[in-house]
């Protein structure tokens, strides 16, 4: 699934790939809302729908980076509003831990980040993607991808 998302634009030098793991109940709907509102946001983001960000696994984040992602955003419900009680809080802990793992192999922790929003926050979705896009562009393409294309 992640590998399929990474096949687009990955080889273009200036293309940035951000994988967004989105909760079905909020961020995914917020992205939909952003579309309905004709809001502009960077095309670098590839959305992967999860039933809840509580489904997020460290392996999913690492898979994204291994397959060429330059950044990963995890977008869940507002804290306290999780459809499954505390899936987004579990995701938050995992995102924090994944930052430590990235640091341990020499990648910048900022390449992964958690966002919270409700399904009505199309504007927030567009702003979150823009923020993440800017952060990742500042960091540059993932050194893993640079290494791969240099080989």
């Amino acid at each position: 699934m992640i590998a399929a998302e990474m096949t687009t634009d990955a080889d273009e030098a200036d293309a940035i790939n951000i994988v967004a793991f989105c909760c079905h109940y909020c961020a995914y709907a917020a992205a939909d809302m952003a579309g309905s509102l004709r809001l502009q946001y960077p095309p670098s983001v590839k959305v992967v729908k999860l039933p809840c960000t509580g489904k997020l696994d460290l392996q999913l984040i690492l898979d994204a980076f291994e397959h060429g992602a330059d950044g990963v955003m995890v977008a869940g419900c507002m804290e306290g509003d999780c459809h499954y009680q505390q899936g987004n809080l579990n995701a938050k802990r995992r995102v924090n831990f994944s930052q430590e793992l990235l640091r341990s192999i020499g990648l910048e922790a900022e390449r992964v980040r958690m966002f919270n929003m409700s399904s009505a926050m199309g504007n927030r979705w567009a702003a979150a993607v823009s923020e993440m896009d800017q952060t990742v562009r500042k960091l540059g393409p993932s050194p893993l991808r640079r290494r791969k294309s240099a080989e």
Partner: peptide, 9 residues
């Protein structure tokens, strides 16, 4: 995953 990525880096 970590060992593969670390080795690549």
């Amino acid at each position: 995953s970590l060992l593969r990525m670390a080795a690549q880096l």
